[in-house]
Design a protein around this nucleic acid. Structure first.
Lengths: 335, 335
DNA sequence: GGACGAAATGTGAACGCAAACATGCGCGGT
DNA sequence: ACCGCGCATGTTTGCGTTCACATTTCGTCC
């Protein structure tokens, strides 16, 4: 920095001012300094800046170390959004979302003096770890506990599940069965409750709840059961992979989709359109969720005083494909 | 740090020595210092350390901002491995793997004074950006150009493709067709060349190459063509998602798998076992690749002098399922 | 034309740490 | 008894930046 200052014929402080876009710098010297910076290929040292300012242009993300589609997409989308605003993203994956692991991951990030923290915390056990965060660390939780009061961004699971269920009812089915995700996931719980309330509002019977773990294997396992129930003509699965396993089980038992059974999934993984048959599913807008998270986080980072405790809910949309038909087998996509 | 020193009755430098596990510290004072650290809840400031040492415990990863299974798994696996050794991982996703984007991402990382760099660079255009790296930045390329001389970790695409092709030939098929990935990906090129050489070695005819883009949609598109060729009884696809699209296309044309057509995929995505039929595929060991990368990177970070320009190839394994049978339709999984 | 204020720039210090160098202490060898 | 050497610890310095404050420059108003 001194070298730049010398070359530009100014003091190091003026260089600093140019770098930080301070106001009281004359156009003329600004150009001189920028020229010197370019000529010397100078790059400011982030570590030094972090040392003196106590913060950095890095956002810490805590997420579960998983190959699950939803969290993975969320992470990718967030990275992209953050990069676009000049923030780097530091990822700390944890194997389990238990209190201890999350607390450790958070501490690692605080050590690094991150400017803010994003926690993708879809399970209840994550709550306590976040409760005891020091002072006013900017924090946004994604897919966290809907009951908590902190800043939260979440896909509207309930609305998505309602849409899926109502879509099946609209096709003429008596009721809709559901294979859920793991019960400790908020996402799973929200989808269950949307499914239940849609059925209740329509005055339909609520069939027993089947529980999966997001995997195709769990869809297959539950499918073995459902395939033998002739009254199960409409099934809403908590995600597309469960639906895939279910499709496989139904096919093995000779039950045709959508002729005998209609299915709606959740996530709209890119492959869903190529399942046999193409899967009607609910598409969450991961990009919108990521952008909302970043926006709320930046608001907290910038206004240090105001406690921005907003929350944002992202509405998903239903993507109709061929896996839904009226009961009895008329092969037709209902409107 | 001063507070800790005062409480322990030593100088700040002794505290520093304890922190860095220097040798010449007596057991007695070490305990005193550690007690003081614990009591005050002191945490060293990484920024200050980075400032004075010129490096940090952060590894920068450059990867394509994509939802593709392979790179995503690789990233996840690497994060986990790095975290286990006390390194944080800073991810810089780029939208396109062109020279400019990669160079930018690399510069962002160098600004942050990362200890080392991992570039997941499956396409040729990434090469030039890495060629002009400053001095001796520890660098490992994953899935990069096999021809380059830098430190490289890669899944053995050729061996995997050979195994897939030979598996189909062993089932009795006349020859094997291939739907490849995008031609600018090394992964895709390796799989093509493994496929070709296996056919050549077996003295079989090499059918025209079909090209996809990793997506199920591209498998479907190519499948429309293949479904009308009765002689295409065995198909090796560059990944499982292409295979899924292909399955869909074949099914629409009434060609049964494996009775009429046998298929082998690549990646072993968790859902592959639940395709209709369950897909025989090649499983790369992402964890092993990630561990190898980290190992090579740490070697470079520690031995600043020695130019460790090793390369590591990870052998994939074939997972036999029901999508392969002898031609003519005997439904049987060949050994 | 001089004084005044705002804009532009410079000066010194401090951020928290590790490296280099300096000190003190005890021990063994001749 | 003396020297010298190794070990444990203390002191000083500087990493590259920003902040708080000091200083200069310039335009403006009466």
């Amino acid at each position: 920095m001194m070298d730049v200052a010398r070359l530009a014929g100014v003091s190091h402080q003026t260089v600093s001012r140019v770098l930080n876009e301070h106001k009281n710098v004359s156009e003329q010297t600004r150009l001189k300094v920028q020229a010197a910076i370019a000529e010397l290929g100078y790059r400011p040292d982030r570590a030094a800046r972090a040392l003196v300012t106590g913060t950095s242009k890095v956002i810490g993300v805590v997420t579960q170390n998983t190959a699950l589609y939803g969290p993975a997409m969320m992470l990718t989308a967030f990275e992209e959004a953050a990069l676009a605003t000049g923030f780097a993203v530091n990822v700390s994956s944890v194997r389990n979302l238990d209190e201890r692991s999350i607390a450790d991951a958070v501490e690692r990030h605080l050590d690094q003096r991150v400017a803010g923290l994003v926690v993708i915390a879809p399970v209840a056990s994550a709550g306590p770890a976040l409760a005891q965060l020091p002072e006013h660390v900017p924090l946004v939780t994604i897919d966290g506990d809907p009951e908590r009061t902190s800043t939260l961004v979440t896909v509207d699971q309930v609305a998505g599940a309602r849409a899926a269920t109502e879509h099946l009812l609209a096709a003429g089915h008596e009721t809709v069965w559901h294979i859920s995700g793991p019960s400790d996931w908020f996402d799973a719980a929200g989808r269950v409750s949307g499914w239940e309330s849609a059925l209740r509002d329509a005055g339909k019977e609520i069939p027993p709840l089947l529980t999966g773990d997001w995997s195709a294997e769990s869809g297959y396992r539950n499918g073995q059961l459902l395939a033998r129930l002739p009254e199960a003509t409409a099934i809403f699965t908590a995600n597309d992979h469960i639906a895939l396993g279910l499709l496989r089980a139904l096919s093995e038992h000779g039950r045709r989709v959508p002729d005998d059974v209609s299915i709606v999934g959740f996530d709209d993984v890119p492959e869903a359109a190529f399942y046999t048959p193409p899967l009607t599913t609910v598409r969450p807008d991961f990009d919108a969720a990521a952008r909302a998270s970043l926006e709320l986080l930046l608001a907290q980072i910038e206004e240090r005083g105001a406690d921005v405790a907003a929350r944002r809910t992202i509405a998903p949309s239903l993507v109709a494909r061929e896996s839904v038909a009226p009961p009895g087998g008329r092969v037709r996509v209902p409107s």
